[in-house]
Write a protein that binds this DNA or RNA. Sequence first.
DNA 1: TTCCAGGCGTATC
DNA 2: GATACGCATGGA
Length: 268
Amino acid sequence: MDYKIDGSDILLEQKDFDLDETLDCGQAFRWRKIDDNTYSGFFLNLPLTISCEDKGKNLFRLKDTSERDFLDKWYNYLDLSTDYSELKRRFSEDETMSKACEFAGGIRILRQDKWEALSSFIISQNNNIPRIKGIIDRLCQHYGEYPSAEMMKDETAESLGFLRSGFRAKYLVDAVSKVNSGELNLDAVATMPIEQARQALMTIKGVGPKVAQCALLFGMYRVEAFPVDVWVKRVMERWYPNGLPDCVKGYEGIAQQYLFHYIRNIGG
DNA sequence: TTCCAGGCGTATC
DNA sequence: GATACGCATGGA
């Protein structure tokens, strides 16, 4: 990772980073493609427009970004401290993982906000990505930003009707209630042993094994969490009937993201 | 029209 | 513990 300040922008040189593969691969739902090389989106409510200026040189421009926001927020959000080349080398001991890493070598795991990831993946269940984005758009439009659990404290399944989120509205309401009451402390969950953390999240109505794993992986950077959705289930049946290879141990969640993207895009 | 989507709660065995 | 089914919505 190398960067310099260019006027009001940050110029970032970063390998193993592709905007489509990272910002539009189903892990985050508030990034919008502006043109071929540019996305606009948010971490919490801090906006960013980011462009790939030169693919060959791994050069990116973070528009209107202070050095402080870059170092304090985006460096962490974009997981710039993790060496994905080294991870891919380890993963590539396995033939399928090798192909998946080669297919989309620019995937990174975003270190998202706990509540946003949890509530987003509650919305994601039995749903498709364009529609998930639509529901989250309406939620943010309504509040003017991504609402905290505190901001949503008076919502009911009925008052959330404008989301057109179907049966998921009541699940959101239960999550809001448990987080606001302190019954579920997301900061505490983030540091629990993984199985205990999973069980704690699953006390929320509408949070099962898959949504819990997604909240842990994408909202709390628990990279050992392994969410299994319909696509990853196909991966397991097709390539890993006896379980994941040893070379992904400890980083199952990151491996999962390569595999998820791979099977969705090769017509599995 | 039917099927499906980054699943889960509930009923039933 | 495993399996079957319904669930809101909207695009293909």
